[in-house]
């Protein structure tokens, strides 16, 4: 009775509702985008009314918010942080730099497309995206979670070899613990 499909559907709806309305964000302030996070959280735009709240450590976080460009050096740390987060986890790519490199399109030291290295669920476009755009991005993520389509972490597990090959391409010195869930 507990494990049949119908009751699993009901449990999924409840769990997805809770996940959707309680997003603990680990704002990885890599680039200039981190400056847009304080106005999003404080009294003018107040993201906490949507259940969005800052998390202190990767272990507690649900959403990894990558704000801006990633150099190959910081990419290593971001991968480490992403693998420390607990399932289900989501990634938001924030700003043009995570989509196509933005103004760093011809830089030798930054990665251009974040999607090759980590599974991104939602992109927020703009350079910089304003707090309204950030809230829109969170709303989109909530829609995806409710529909059960925000399965980036599942994609990462299934295509780990592909992601690892891409990551090792740009990170020459790979001294990291193996990914253990």
């Amino acid at each position: 009775m507990i494990n049949d499909k119908e009751s699993q559907k009901i449990v999924d709806i409840i769990q997805n509702f809770a996940r959707k309305h309680s997003l603990w964000v680990l704002a990885y302030g890599t680039g200039c985008g981190a400056i847009e996070i304080p106005p999003t959280m404080t009294s003018r735009y107040d993201a906490e009314r949507l259940g969005v709240r800052g998390a202190a450590t990767p272990r507690q976080a649900d959403v990894l918010l990558i704000t801006g460009y990633l150099t190959t050096k910081t990419l290593k740390r971001v991968i480490r942080v992403y693998e420390q987060m607990q399932d289900p986890k989501y990634v938001i790519g924030f700003g043009s730099c995570t989509i196509n490199g933005g103004m760093y399109f011809d830089s030798y030291n930054t990665i251009k497309a974040l999607d090759r290295y980590l599974p991104v669920d939602v992109y927020i476009n703009g350079c910089m995206p304003r707090p309204e755009a950030v809230l829109k991005g969170f709303a989109k993520l909530q829609e995806l979670i409710q529909a059960g389509k925000a399965d980036g972490s599942k994609k990462y597990k299934e295509n780990l070899e592909w992601y690892r090959a891409n990551q090792k391409e740009v990170i020459p010195v790979w001294r990291m613990p193996e990914f253990n869930w």
Partner: peptide, 29 residues
């Protein structure tokens, strides 16, 4: 706290949702 800081703040049942979410996490190291 939110009202003192001139915010709207989360609904009163926000912590229930947080607890359910934490309880339904799939992995724990």
């Amino acid at each position: 706290t939110a009202r003192v800081q001139n915010r709207i703040g989360p609904p009163w049942y926000q912590n229930f949702l947080d607890v359910i979410k934490l309880g339904s996490k799939k992995t724990a190291i």
